[in-house]
């Protein structure tokens, strides 16, 4: 299966990755090779095989007691943010 520059555009948009025009055919070629490589999975006989989502099958979710364990540390956490005002993280204006 080979991917086109248009496919790359669509995927890049879903993933919110800015890709320049000259990069598009390069990624299309790379991704085509990767997809062609993984296409060999189609040969495996997997009828009736349960998909394995986790390496330690049989284990189940452990639960946490409903307790507040985290204190406010906003000032420290927001030191890594590029734009903050009045405790809010800022993004360009979103129109709904």
């Amino acid at each position: 299966m080979s991917l086109t520059s248009r496919d790359v555009e669509k995927i890049a948009h879903l993933a919110r990755l800015g890709i320049t025009d000259p990069e598009k055919p390069v990624y299309a070629a790379n991704l085509s090779k990767i997809v062609e490589f993984v296409d060999q999975l189609a040969r495996a006989k997997t009828d009736g095989v349960t998909p394995m989502a986790h390496p330690l099958e049989g284990l189940t979710q452990r639960l946490r007691a409903d307790e507040v364990t985290e204190a406010d540390d906003r000032e420290k956490y927001q030191r890594n943010a590029a734009a903050v005002q009045a405790g809010l993280y800022l993004v360009p204006k979103v129109i709904e």
Partner: peptide
Amino acid sequence: MTGTYVLSAGYFDAYYLKAQQVRQL
């Protein structure tokens, strides 16, 4: 991008689910 592609509508079964099955094998 590869991961976005294999999870996207229309490809999920052929790639992601299939890979999880081979993983089981």
